[in-house]
Design a protein around this nucleic acid. Sequence first.
DNA 1: ATATTAACCAAACGGTCGTTTGTTTAGCAA
DNA 2: TTGCTAAACAAACGACCGTTTGGTTAATAT
Lengths: 199, 199
Amino acid sequence: MTTAAKHAPARPKRRNNRQGAVLDAAAARFRQHGYAATSMRDIAADAGMLPGSLYYHYPAKNALLVAVHEEGVRRIAAAVDHALAGIPELEPWRRLEAALAAHMETLLGGGDYSLVVLRDLPADDSALRARLVRLRDGYEARFKTLCRALPLTDPDAEPWLRMMILGAANWARVWYRPGGKAPAEVARQFISQLKGAPP
Amino acid sequence: MTTAAKHAPARPKRRNNRQGAVLDAAAARFRQHGYAATSMRDIAADAGMLPGSLYYHYPAKNALLVAVHEEGVRRIAAAVDHALAGIPELEPWRRLEAALAAHMETLLGGGDYSLVVLRDLPADDSALRARLVRLRDGYEARFKTLCRALPLTDPDAEPWLRMMILGAANWARVWYRPGGKAPAEVARQFISQLKGAPP
DNA sequence: ATATTAACCAAACGGTCGTTTGTTTAGCAA
DNA sequence: TTGCTAAACAAACGACCGTTTGGTTAATAT
């Protein structure tokens, strides 16, 4: 069930709140069919209400996309932060591997929200587009920090290494099938390819 | 040929043929806005004709998508094959690098067709989807061959290494900007990260 | 008990969608 | 010139789109 547990106003809501169901439905549809191919009627049907009722919770379709993106970034960021906080490990490669494992587990683990972040952004609304890109960049800054800490023989290699890691990880959604290796194992293999091969 | 061919199928077209313009317009729109967000009216306007006229050349919208995919795969495959044929080099890493450079140059070099192949496939038509996946898989088989030829210390690493390379390369379309390093240079850096660093 | 209002329904708005149908124009062969 | 046909136009079809509007229901605060 569901969605962002806001902690700021901390209002437990007076009554039945199906806003979460709406966002869940939107996330599922956006992930599976993409934003443009998803209609408000699809989302409404999945959420068990009529199309017009969606506008009580969200003012427009693209507001739903923003909300899903925000929640998706929030979730994957939380997973990575939690993984990094959970290890006493200080060895840079191990930290990067732990972060990548959390990243890929979140993406490939079946959740809809974070996968929407990887989909193509709407090209017609540049303001919206910029907003979503900023969201994702804020998250990916973590990997910049992690990669900078690596003991590389060539420091100039860091950006390329980082692009490779994130690119390979994000592209995994194209070929990964739930039956295969665990996402964490994939992450381990990816990191292993880049470390050279010290015993 | 002595006898008259009644109606030769391979006719070089008798007259002004704007079918190419239609396909170009479709490729450009599909790349920039995606399949679902592109209307037949958009394509028609770009091609300089009315919406209904498109149906003289292609029977349906998804036929246009298939045609663009086929041409996109054909082009990138031709680029890679040409690059491989053009080098007398037999060293496996160098061959892989040359192939990847051609791959990325085609993708990032501004052509619309091949980039469409990397976009998300329509989820509602599974037959169409399978057809497009088969097309792409046929192309990517080249990299399987190239990676198998690598002198790896651990032969089991080959699939992961291949997934990393193609994933990183394909994801480059998300962050690559025409002003930056040449695609071939990016390819070189990617390969360099994976070779370890034997002098 | 009453007033309030969160949450939804019911029905439509104008616009756009992919596609079809019938008609017209222009280059070639006879 | 006449006939053929490739290649387009012109106009519409029903379906669906995102969104709006006004009314209904039921839980809560007073």
